[in-house]
């Protein structure tokens, strides 16, 4: 029974993906035909030949990398303060940092668009990246601050008492101790940015085209093969990132477990 349920679960998760793969390599598979009549790579070819596809992937990737880096740099000190210190206004700081998760992105996007148009950031990669930060920061701050809440500062004190300078402590101790959580936080930031549609569209103003933007356009176009191909391309990088970090995380997890 357990195995049946497990098999069903996997089926539910994998079925849409399998369908995408089938759709990607067929043309004109319509109800009530039980199987595709014709296998072809022309739709796939067509999608790959379109410069917007690879361009969109590349731009989305660049933005996601910038956003991940900025998120880490901004979230790290904030998370440290929230996780390790008690201070006046801590609750308010939490609230402000988490506001973007409840405020509709449309509301933020409209306001930001007006502001960015004035300062010349609208329609630029930097502008879109900054807008994405609003969505990614709550996740990175949350991941890192819960790690800092379990963090033992005495490891840093110990390093200090052994003659390490503050910079040496940061690079040799703090970053090493935080590596697993930093990987998870980066992963969150990357994925949230990679799949961001609305803010990219609003701030990018048609100049910054990422894969989600193309995907939404294709979805309203109604050609299932095109949708399928773009969906697959959309899933591929995050899937690779997760596959890579899962191994890393597992290793770090074991290292840490040995301690206790």
């Amino acid at each position: 029974m357990k195995y049946v349920i497990r098999a069903l679960l996997y089926l539910v998760l994998v079925a849409p993906l399998a369908l995408f793969i089938v759709y990607s390599f067929t043309e004109g598979w319509f109800f009530p035909a039980p199987f595709p009549s014709e296998w072809t790579t022309t739709t796939f070819q067509r999608a790959m030949d379109d410069p917007r596809t690879l361009g969109g992937m590349w731009q989305g990737f660049v933005i996601a990398v910038i956003v991940s880096l900025l998120s880490l740099i901004l979230a790290f000190p904030a998370a440290r303060a929230l996780g390790l210190r008690q201070f006046r206004g801590r609750q308010i700081a939490w609230l402000v940092l988490f506001l973007p998760t409840v405020v509709p992105p449309l509301a933020i996007g409209m306001g930001l668009n007006i502001l960015f148009l004035r300062v010349g950031l609208a329609g630029t990669i930097m502008g879109v990246s900054l807008a994405h930060l609003i969505s990614t920061l709550p996740y990175t701050v949350f991941t890192l601050s819960s790690a800092f809440a379990r963090y033992d500062e005495n490891y840093e004190h110990q390093a200090l008492a052994l003659g390490a300078s503050p910079a040496q402590i940061f690079f040799n101790i703090t970053l090493r101790m935080m590596t697993p959580s930093l990987v998870v936080a980066t992963l969150f930031a990357f994925l949230v940015s990679w799949s961001q549609y609305l803010l990219t569209l609003l701030i990018g103003g048609g100049k910054i085209i990422t894969l989600p933007v193309l995907l939404f356009t294709a979805a309203s176009g109604g050609n299932p093969s095109t949708i399928a191909i773009k969906s697959l391309l959309f899933i591929l990088p995050p899937a690779l990132v997760i596959a890579f970090t899962a191994r890393e995380l597992n290793r770090h997890g074991n290292d840490i477990r040995e301690q206790y």
Binding site: A159, L162, S165, Q168, N172, R176
Partner: peptide, 26 residues
């Protein structure tokens, strides 16, 4: 002046040799 605590606070990501050599390496 060096300090040693109740808990050893050996760095979990370093082996014994790297732990002992930490101060010198710094």
């Amino acid at each position: 002046a060096v300090l040693m605590f109740q808990k050893s606070y050996l760095f979990p990501f370093l082996n014994v040799e790297e732990n002992i050599g930490f101060g010198l390496k710094m």
